[in-house]
């Protein structure tokens, strides 16, 4: 498959000596939705800024559709769209004025801009509000307008830095829908960053787990989950006799997909299976029945990207993100103050 983005041994060290990105390599296929998943300060935004030519890499080679990003930054700018982490909308201009100027900065003609802005504004449900000042827009609308602007010149590769930061669940899902549509209708390659597990899971074909400037794992969400072990079935037997239970568990161990049986307290056992836990559950039932044991409850848990994250970084994302809430709060405060 053809590669839209190729990064080899990228390192970015900021002036103060902060190593934001530490020798990472990866590629993104054409037409793929690729995600960078990581906590605050992992180096996600830095990577994007280097890829669109806003920052110079300290070391490393970068290619966009085969063009060297460091040597020909002007050339790649026409092919990339960028919606920054913080929405960059001039709120003293109207929605249409914002997008019109963006089109002009990409050297489009008035006719082209008029046609395309109608198209993208309709797509993002902003067309009815096109003549309103951006000042009157909600956070979700601003974010949508920002992404719409990034599309006005029909980029081949779209970079979205935390496209759903600070938005509520509903708005987040509509934005996911827009992103999926973009890929489906325009075969666009999309590189996005996020620290939401569900987002990476719901959207991305492949995900890179990044932490402290290093890539810890890259694969499809499914494969990443597979790597850390399969589904976990938790069973609670109602039988008192340990002997009978051991007999059942012995038979369960015979099922080929069962990898491990963990002894739990209070007759609760964890059965780790390599795949398709939902198909194993009926078998466990029939084995228990044959041995005359009743099951109080049974639960199937698929590993989440959360578990993947824990596996590859040794931390839950929350541990790294304690200050996330307060960070978002101060950002919202700042935004209000600016008005």
């Amino acid at each position: 498959m053809e590669k839209a983005i190729e990064v080899k041994n990228l390192t970015k060290i900021y002036k103060g000596g902060i190593v934001a990105v530490n020798n990472i390599s990866f590629y993104v296929n054409k037409g793929e939705i690729f995600g960078f998943l990581g906590p605050n300060g992992a180096g996600k935004s830095t990577t994007i800024k280097v890829l669109i030519g806003l920052l110079r890499p300290t070391r490393g080679e970068l290619f966009l559709n085969g063009v060297d990003i460091v040597k020909h930054p002007e050339q790649i700018k026409r092919d990339t769209g960028y919606a920054a982490q913080e929405t960059a909308i001039d709120d003293r201009l109207t929605c249409l004025e914002n997008i019109y100027l963006q089109g002009r900065f990409y050297h489009l003609s008035r006719e082209e801009i008029e046609k395309r802005s109608e198209e993208v504004l309709k797509m993002f449900d902003l067309f009815d509000r096109k003549n309103n000042l951006a000042l009157t827009f909600s956070g979700g609308m601003l974010k949508r307008l920002d992404i719409a602007e990034a599309l006005i010149h029909r980029p081949k590769v779209l970079f979205l830095d935390e496209p759903t930061l600070g938005l509520d669940v509903q708005t987040r899902q509509t934005i996911w829908e827009y992103i999926r549509n973009l890929r489906r209708r325009n075969q666009m390659t999309i590189f996005l960053t996020t620290h939401y597990m569900e987002e990476a899971d719901a959207l991305c074909d492949r995900v890179a787990v990044i932490d402290e400037g290093k890539i810890k794992a890259i694969d499809s969400p499914e494969n990443l989950k597979q790597q850390i072990g399969g589904d976990i079935i938790t069973v609670n037997f109602s039988e008192v006799s340990n002997g009978k239970i051991q007999k059942v568990l012995g038979e369960v161990r015979q099922i080929p997909q069962v990898k491990k049986v963990n002894l739990g307290r209070d007759k609760i056992y964890q059965i780790v299976v390599s795949q398709r836990g939902d198909k194993i559950i009926p078998e466990i039932f029939s084995i228990s029945q044959r041995n005359g044991i009743n099951i109080n409850s049974i639960r199937l848990k698929r590993p989440s990207l959360e578990d993947v994250y824990l596996h590859f970084t040794g931390r839950t994302i929350q541990e790294k993100e304690e200050s996330r809430e307060s960070l978002i709060k101060t950002r919202i405060m700042k935004r209000k103050l600016r008005r």
């Binding site: 806003l54 002007e74 700018k77 990339t80 920054a84 960059a88 909308i89 001039d90 709120d91 900065f105």
Partner: peptide
Amino acid sequence: RRIGYLEKLLASPI
């Protein structure tokens, strides 16, 4: 620069 508009301008081919 504060509102990120400068970054947007710099990312565009102007």
